Simulated scan of single mutants.
Amino acid sequence: MQKPAFLISIDTEGDNLWVNTKDISTQNAKFLDRFQQLCEKYGFKPTYLTNYEMAISPDYVAFAKDVIARNQGEVGMHLHAWNSPPLQPLTDDDDRYKPYLIEYPQTIMREKIAVMTDLLEDIFDVKMLSHRAGRWAFNEYYAQLLHEFGYQVDCSVTPYVDWSGVKGKPDGNGGTDYSQFPDGAYFMDLNDISKVGTSSLLQIPMSTRLKYGSLHNSFKQLYDGLRGKKRPPSTRWLRPKGNNVEEMKFVAQQCLDEGKNYVEFMLHSSEFMPGGSPTFKDDTSIEQLYRDLEELFEWLSQCTQGMTMAEFYQYKLMG
Score class of each variant (00 low, 15 high):
Ala5Gln: 12
Thr12Ser: 10
Ile24Ser: 03
Asn28Met: 04
Asn28Ala: 00
Ala29Thr: 07
Arg34Asp: 00
Gln36Asp: 01
Lys41Trp: 01
Tyr42Gln: 01
Tyr42Trp: 06
Tyr42Glu: 02
Lys45Gln: 06
Thr47Gln: 04
Met54Gly: 08
Tyr60Lys: 00
Ala62Gln: 14
Phe63Leu: 12
Phe63Thr: 14
Asp66Asn: 15
Arg70Thr: 14
Asn71Ser: 14
Gln72Ser: 15
Gly73Gln: 03
Ala81Val: 00
Ser84Trp: 02
Ser84Leu: 00
Pro85Arg: 07
Asp92Arg: 13
Asp94Ile: 04
Arg96Ile: 09
Tyr100Ala: 01
Pro105Lys: 10
Gln106Trp: 10
Gln106Gly: 09
Ile108Phe: 03
Ile108Tyr: 03
Met116Asn: 01
Thr117Cys: 07
Asp118Lys: 11
Asp118Trp: 11
Asp122Val: 06
Met128Arg: 12
Arg132Pro: 02
Ala133Gly: 03
Asn139Phe: 05
Glu140Ser: 11
Tyr142Met: 03
Tyr142Gly: 04
Tyr142Trp: 11
Ala143Asn: 08
Gln144Asn: 07
Glu148His: 11
Cys155Ile: 07
Ser156Ile: 09
Val157Glu: 08
Thr158Glu: 13
Lys167Cys: 13
Asn173Val: 10
Thr176Tyr: 01
Asp177Leu: 03
Asp177Asn: 15
Tyr178Ala: 09
Gln180Asn: 14
Phe181Met: 12
Asp189Asn: 09
Leu190Trp: 04
Asn191His: 11
Asp192Phe: 08
Ile193Gln: 02
Ser194Gly: 14
Ser194Pro: 07
Val196Phe: 09
Gly197Phe: 06
Thr198Ile: 09
Ser200Val: 15
Pro205His: 11
Met206Pro: 05
Tyr212Leu: 12
Phe219Arg: 08
Lys220Val: 12
Leu222Met: 14
Arg227Phe: 13
Arg231Pro: 10
Arg231Trp: 14
Pro232Leu: 15
Thr235Trp: 07
Trp237Thr: 00
Leu238Val: 07
Glu247Tyr: 01
Met248Tyr: 05
Phe250Ser: 03
Val251Met: 04
Val251Cys: 00
Asp257Glu: 12
Glu271Arg: 03
Met273Pro: 00
Ser277Val: 06
Ser277His: 08
Asp282Arg: 09
Gln288Thr: 15
Leu293Ala: 11
Phe297Lys: 00
Glu298Gln: 02
Gln314Pro: 02
Tyr315Val: 08
Leu317Asp: 08
Leu317Tyr: 05
Met318Ile: 15
Gly319Ser: 14
